[in-house]
Amino acid sequence: MEMRLLCLMALSCLLLANGDAQDTCTNVDDTLEDFKVKTYFWENATGFNNDMTCSWTMRAVNQGNKIAYQLTDINLGVDDHINVYAGTSTGDQNVLTNRTGTSLSLTIIGVDSPAVHVVLQTGNVMQATRQSVNAYFMAGSDHSGAVSCVNQTLVAGAEPQFLTTPAFPMAYPVSKKCSWIITSPESATLELTFHMIDIEAGDSAATCNYDGLVVYLPGQKDTPELLVCRRNVWVPETHAIASNQVQLDFSADDSDSYGGFVLSYKAILPPTTTTTPQTSTEGTTDSSGCNTEQTTSEDEPGSSDSTSSDSENEGCELVSCVIPIVVVIVLLFVAVVVAVVLVRKRQKGSSKKYTPAAGTEPGEMKKMSPDAEDV
């Protein structure tokens, strides 16, 4: 009975939640960390409510960043529309005016502002069909190179670092060529993660004959690791490079530029193994021949083999235990012998009898000659 009641309560909550989602509009005010993608999706199977206004306000945490956004899966009524402002309110610059339509996806657009304000307004005509809009946001800046994107050398570490096309989040320039070499310690490999890709594909993604990014090991451009030229990709893609160095060449032709790419790179170091250091002794020795000073790790130059060191230490421990026992036994034996000798001497002295000499008076004892005395 209790289980049925819980199931009914859960179902009721779910139905109420869906009803609220259809009948209400929640305004969003959120922040964007560097190169972190945030996605929002509004959808109603029977149409948004009339005279509804909803908004997304996205603010870059780093005020030096700008915003890239994209609206996809747009399905609106004839009197519904979307506006985008370069700022935090409708009083800022309008960069997308009264956009509407069905089965529509806009291109990725860069906004020259650390904030963006997207407003959805519905009209008076009730829609009986599905309505939706999907929005992607990212804050970032140009990470193509300190001075130029040509012949840049980047050093990968354990923490991710970012690389972008020139001018990001604005569209990359036409007729642009860039090259970067990413290097890491010799024992490491590399990991590349694409967070956004918006590069003109040309005739096909397999040729990238218009714009494209080629990722290859130095000197092996004819057999690249990756060939990248796709549009409107926001799903992260991670690629392992089995080398401590990789080269990236980006080229754009003389027409049509797009959002470009954002990728992070980092070095993958081999796992470290920890061993318990064996110790050996050096320097002076005690009377048993065992070392008594200066311990050194087996990894240090001049240290002895761990097996021989262990056997030597075991021998030293045995000797150090036996010697005291032997000394105690000897001392006990000597003490017993001395005690026996003293007892016998005392018994012999007490048993000697003296006979009075003739002519002596009773009670007078004749003095014995020195030879008769006990020594």
Rank of each mutant, 00 (worst) to 15 (best):
E312I: 04
I74G: 03
I268S: 04
V262L: 03
C208R: 08
T279L: 12
E159M: 01
S304E: 10
A60V: 11
S141Q: 07
A17E: 13
V327F: 07
G363C: 06
S311R: 14
G315A: 15
A188D: 15
C208N: 04
V340M: 06
L76K: 01
I67C: 05
K367H: 00
S369P: 01
A372N: 13
T193N: 06
L248Q: 05
C13S: 11
L227I: 10
N151C: 02
V341Y: 08
V84K: 06
V228D: 07
I329M: 04
T72N: 09
G77A: 12
M52C: 15
H239C: 02
P169M: 04
S144Y: 05
G359S: 10
A171H: 11
S297N: 14
F250S: 00
V214S: 08
K221P: 01
S251N: 06
F168H: 13
S280Y: 01
K353T: 11
T272I: 15
V133M: 04
T292F: 00
V111D: 00
T238Y: 09
L217S: 10
D253P: 07
F168T: 08
K367R: 11
M126N: 00
E282Q: 13
E225A: 15
K367N: 02
L11E: 10
Y172P: 02
C7K: 09
N75P: 04
S320V: 03
T97L: 12
E186W: 02
S105W: 08
T189E: 06
N50E: 13
V174P: 00
N209R: 12
T295G: 05
A206Q: 11
D34L: 13
A45Y: 09
Y172A: 03
T285M: 11
Q245W: 00
S89K: 12
S55I: 05
A45C: 00
S141R: 10
A68W: 07
N83Y: 06
Y40S: 07
N313W: 09
H117D: 01
V340T: 03
Q161G: 10
P114C: 08
Q127K: 04
M196T: 09
T285V: 15
Y258S: 13
C290I: 04
N83D: 15
S113H: 10
F168M: 09
V174F: 03
S148Y: 02
V262M: 08
E159W: 01
L318S: 08
D79T: 14
Y265D: 02
S175P: 00
A156H: 07
N232D: 14
D79G: 05
P173H: 09
T285P: 00
K177Q: 07
Q70Y: 05
T279Q: 13
P277S: 11
T72I: 03
N151R: 12
P218I: 06
S306F: 00
V174G: 05
T276L: 14
S132I: 05
V334A: 02
V118K: 05
C321I: 06
Y69A: 10
G19V: 10
A206T: 15
A252Y: 04
I82L: 15
A167P: 03
E312P: 00
L16T: 14
T284V: 12
P114T: 10
K221F: 03
R344E: 01
